[in-house]
Design a binder for these strands. Structure first.
Lengths: 198, 198
DNA sequence: CGGTTGACATACGCGGCGTATGTCCCGAGA
DNA sequence: TCTCGGGACATACGCCGCGTATGTCAACCG
């Protein structure tokens, strides 16, 4: 598969733009981020941007795709570290809360993303986060650990709770202390899905 | 307290602007809503707007304050209709989900609001929604119905779950059917807070 | 009744997005 | 090797929207 030099440079250009965009969007927010400054930061101009991504929203979509994949991977890793499927589910949720402490994820994935692109479930990458959580819950239902419930519904609520918790933690004065409370509350809530209390 | 004619007109002007803003923000979103069109719709100009609200964000703050108060009132009404405190808590959550089905609330309170003004807990009206939920949970803890947990943390997660559920429902093809699933999942999750299962 | 204040309208400048147009270089074919 | 077409990116332009500075007119006050 001879990926000629042209295609190679193209990918490099896209990568540079996405890198600069992640930085700018995270620091200034989507609305306040200037395309001129952003592309200059990447050593390019707006021409490259509109050629590769169509428009400003297209760039945001690309950025979100990338971060979403990273988050899903992080969640998967957390789940794999656990001993039981249920523990894995909990760890996955905790991982989301902790990941969402990073300003970049907060600003881009939780605040600007939904506002600009609408409902996360209909995002380009189909939102890997939601899909993995849904699959996890579905497995737990089939395993008879979790009550028979609509897996997607549960995933939505659990994710929403986790991400909202993260927003709260990050905005607080003492994030570390508040994080503990958030995780505890999350465990309690999640336990409501159990068939019988452990 | 002689509210002179001036003050009276002032209030009327603010009300007209807020009314037009709710409509415009809900239909076009905050970013795409033009101040020129918005104020013209209200029979005024941008002069009135910047005089009364400072800037575009100021107008959004005022709009959010109003809607937040309405939502808190709706939640209170739902809670009061229930027979037990716990049922009241559940009904409050369900009410949030149902209210969030309105496009106006989705767009303004759930999408643009957080993106433009940041964390809801630090909003002007201090977010009546969150405060009422926190108080409700605190009461349930003291009543020994709910496990000893940080009330604010629980309120945050529950609210987050409810509002996220609403986003999901509203974006779905068959909102009515999905709403049922969402409410069921919400009840399960919330039951995780109970000291012992009912 | 003249002066002052405040509510609102009008006028202007700056900046940002998107697009139309231009330029250059790579790669294919004769 | 020379040519030439197309793609990747840069440059130039127009439009729109926000915020502010300035203007105007009506309501209070002495």
């Amino acid at each position: 598969m001879a990926t000629g030099r042209r295609a190679k440079m193209m990918e490099e250009t896209r990568a540079k733009l996405i890198r600069a965009a992640r930085k700018a969007f995270a620091e200034k927010g989507y609305a306040a981020a200037s395309m001129d400054e952003l592309t200059a930061e990447a050593g390019l101009t707006r021409g490259a941007l509109y050629h590769n991504f169509g428009d400003k929203k297209g760039l945001l979509r690309a950025v979100i795709d990338e971060i979403d994949a990273e988050m899903a991977e992080g969640a998967r890793a957390a789940r794999d570290r656990a001993e039981t499927p249920w523990q894995g589910f909990i760890e996955e949720g905790v991982a989301y809360i902790e990941m969402a402490l990073e300003p970049e994820i907060q600003r881009i994935m939780l605040l600007d993303g939904p506002a600009v692109l609408g409902d996360p479930a209909q995002w380009p990458g189909q939102n890997a986060c939601l899909r993995t959580t849904t699959a996890t819950i579905q497995a737990l239902i089939e395993e008879r650990t979790v009550r028979p419930v609509d897996a997607e519904a549960a995933a939505r609520l659990v994710n929403g709770a986790a991400l909202n918790a993260a927003l709260w933690v990050a905005a607080s004065d003492d994030p570390r202390a508040v994080l503990v409370k958030a995780i505890e509350a999350f465990r309690f809530l999640a336990s409501g899905l159990l068939r019988e209390r452990g």
